[in-house]
Amino acid sequence: MSATAFRQVTQDRSLYVPAGLFLVLLCAVAFRGQGLFTNNGLAGAILVATPLILTALAITPIVMAGRGAVDLSVGPLMGFVNVTLITWLVGNGITHPVAIIAWAVGLGAAFQLVQALVIIYVRVAPIIVTLSGFLVLSGVNLMVMSRPGGVAPDWMLSWGAGTSVFSPVLLLLLGAFAIWGVLRGTMFYRNLRMTGADERMAYTSGVQVDVVRIIAHMVGGVFAGLAALSYTALISSGDPTQGSTYTLQAVTALVLGGASLSGGRGGALGSTLGAINMFLISYLLSTFNFGTVSGFVTQMAFGLILVGSLLVNVFVISRRTVA
């Protein structure tokens, strides 16, 4: 798998920047100390980074489908799955793993199916539909659970211990990659890219653009469900308030990963790299101590790094179009 990933990085120039940034950050983190490169460090990192990686993956197919379809609803959707899981299922004594996983994945896919149908048949710009989804779910989440609380099912508590690299959380991540890998191997991936790059061209050439869009959304929904599972494992409870944060982080990760929000360009590898880079930036900043203003310095530095890497992206992209 890493071999194909490597080949992709060397072929696709939009991955140069995220891959380069990744290496730089990795060196910087190593330079700051060995904390991350121990079993516990890595296990903790996987635990913390997985929800972010999975939400970034969740919006990847949707953004790729074009029409400026940035899925703003992804964070609240993850939160929705999380709080309903804790309140409705666990709260009513349903804790069987199959039921929990089916609920998470099914709910994510169902919600995205609804959004896709609204986008296709009501024909309102996708970003407006997902903005609406964002607001609705943000509200509903707080109605389902007014403040963070509840407990995850017993069997999930050990997931969040962060003591082993090969935890079930890693399995969630690998599961998502596997799904994506299978899709990439089919014509769906190319149809998706073409739909995103120029929908009118794809439509007139006989691509079933509506079907492609629906599948893209549902795959995104499944990833959002997996993200919710990993998030539940991470906090071992329910939290209705983090939706907006995760949406912004996921979109940022996507852009840092070299995807184009106007469709056609991007992929799971880029989004994953983007998300890992975001995690590494936060991790790196947390190794410094700025005293009382620490939080603010982190925020500022994070913003500046974002700006910097976007500028490098621009440089690479504009070089590419000239070439």
Binding site: G68, V70, L248, V251, T252, V255, L256, S260, L261, S262, F296, V297, T298, Q299, M300, A301, F302, G303, L304, I305, L306, V307, L310, N313
Partner: peptide, 17 residues
């Protein structure tokens, strides 16, 4: 299309400062 992330970054930087 990516400009929104740039504005987000600058917003973070400004409010942090």
């Amino acid at each position: 299309g990516q400009a929104l992330i740039m504005s987000l970054g600058l917003g973070f930087a400004a409010v942090g400062a």
